[in-house]
Write a protein that binds this DNA or RNA. Structure first.
Lengths: 150, 150
DNA sequence: TTTAGTGCAAAGGCTTTGCACACCG
DNA sequence: CGGTGTGCAAAGCCTTTGCACTAAA
């Protein structure tokens, strides 16, 4: 996944949000994480940014992450154990396969069969707003590790 | 969904866990909730049980719910806003449609296409352990309410 | 100059933990 | 009796909130 810090700042600007130092630092760091395909916890992101600016507030990071998740720039990826991490989004629509042991994340192209959701809408009367598919399992490395220790 | 308090106690027994007063109270209450199709938060369940036994500890309820989720007696149903509630499971395999406004829960029969998961396993090398599908939307009542207030 | 944005610290919610006692088997 | 299970209260974790101050536009 490749995304520029600039385009993340554009996301803020498009919402009428100001171009501030904290948001610039966050955008830059996210661009780096995206390039490396790394996911992160909010607190980790904050800790890393503290090295650049020791004054940066934890709440500011939470506030920015919230905005970016809402705008679809970040994915909030839940794990089987109830925890979650964030990740710069890949394609326009995808789901995740996560390792129950090491929390590795793999983006998936699979989805529900065509028409399932519209059928659902007419059957239930719900206005369908979205959906999430999470697949859980053991990655190759952890399969081996698990077998060795059990 | 119909399940007897007795069969829930059997679930504990099958794990070698003792038949205690707190577990009996919890099993009975869950059977009632199942009959009514009601879902619940851990704290609500505790509050209700306090009326029966004011000595019952909050942690005990958490501990029992954990066991029952693990055993598949209860579903942990997540909502779009990151919260979750519990529910006595219906069929052997199903997913959920939840209302983003009132948190109503509907059990769904839909699932991933046949063979998707095995294809995934061979493509990724993961040992697939499970999956979850959550569909989010507005229930008929909340569609109307939302339209009226906006 | 105006008001969104921020840093800080405190409060919140939900859940887990530690421990002495109770009680099931 | 022996060891699991429990109640209680404290601590944990992650996240949000309130508020005076800073700085973007």
């Amino acid at each position: 996944v490749t995304i520029s810090a600039h385009s993340i700042l554009d996301t803020f600007e498009a919402l009428g949000l100001r171009n501030t130092r904290p948001r610039r630092l966050i955008a830059q760091r996210l661009a780096e994480l995206a390039a490396r395909g790394e996911d992160f916890a909010t607190d980790e992101l904050w800790q890393e940014l503290l090295r650049v600016d020791p004054q940066l507030g934890r709440a500011t990071v939470f506030r920015s992450v919230d905005v970016l998740v809402e705008q679809g720039v970040l994915d909030r990826v839940p794990f089987a154990d109830g925890t979650h991490r964030y990740r710069v989004c890949g394609g326009p629509h995808h789901h995740h396969l996560t390792c129950t042991r090491c929390h590795q994340i793999v983006e998936l192209a699979l989805c529900l069969p065509e028409g399932e959701l519209s059928a659902l809408a007419s059957q239930t009367g719900f206005d369908i707003e979205g959906h999430a598919i999470e697949v859980f399992g053991r990655c190759p490395a952890c399969r081996t590790a698990g077998a060795a220790s059990s």
